[in-house]
Amino acid sequence: MDLKDIRVAVLRIEGTNCEEESFLAFKRLGADPEMVHLKQLTGDSSHPRKLKDYHALMFPGGFSAGDYVRAGAIFSARIKSSLGRDLVRFVEDGYPVLGICNGFQILVELGLLPGLSGTMTGRAEAVLATNDSNRFECRPTILKHVKRGNRVFTEKMGYGELFTIPSAHAEGKFVLPEDREKEMLEEMVKNDQIVFQYVKPDGTKAEYPFNPNGSILNIAGITNPAGNVMGMMPHPERAFYRSTSPNWTRHPLPLEDFGDGWYIFSSLLNYVSRRF
């Protein structure tokens, strides 16, 4: 389908706060994004919308409903109760679902990620826990792209290439249940679910602060086994252009150029336009 016909729902409730820059990322690429309030999808609004009218769904960053219980917990509970079935169908039909930062936390809370035992597992299989530093960490991070195949969100990124995309979160440490950590990780690796790992500028294994949260295996982003649901902690929408990317003053290149975040939005739209 044509790029301009690709409808992207950027979903929000009170406390999501990265929706405008996320919306702009799709808009700048020529797609047809819309900021949609959860209430619009559940019919409690004077402007109702239906999930099936969109070709991609994005959960932007923020602090949905304050994140007072656990990051993403309230948003996901509300989605599950009102929209669960529509969402499963949406994913199973192959449409891409992208969650960034708080959106990643929501996808994990929903059971869409890592999704080892089904499209949307009844209980969360993992958690994005409080950073090891016990502080909110806003800092540039460097990601190594390690997904080999089925790259719905990263087809324009080479295997092993490094991308500088900033992080900003207090709960970003990807953790699996202790007793099943090893087998689940093995399964995720086998399924080619790990997309991004935090690394040092030279590409070697990251420690704090390059891994800002203490994630196992330096995991920064993963997909579901099918590859069409991706969550990541760093914010590609903040690095859409070079001008908002970290450290551009040290590398005099044209600022009209795209930043490293561009690849993700562009890959996603490419996938939709090819597939649907």
Partner: peptide, 23 residues
């Protein structure tokens, strides 16, 4: 102090409060 504040949300911060080589 500064790393605890989100100084990049909205994606319009072209010159950040902390300016240094990565890391």
């Amino acid at each position: 102090v500064v790393h605890q504040y989100d100084h990049e949300v909205r994606g319009k911060t072209v010159i950040k409060p902390l300016q240094a080589k990565l890391g």
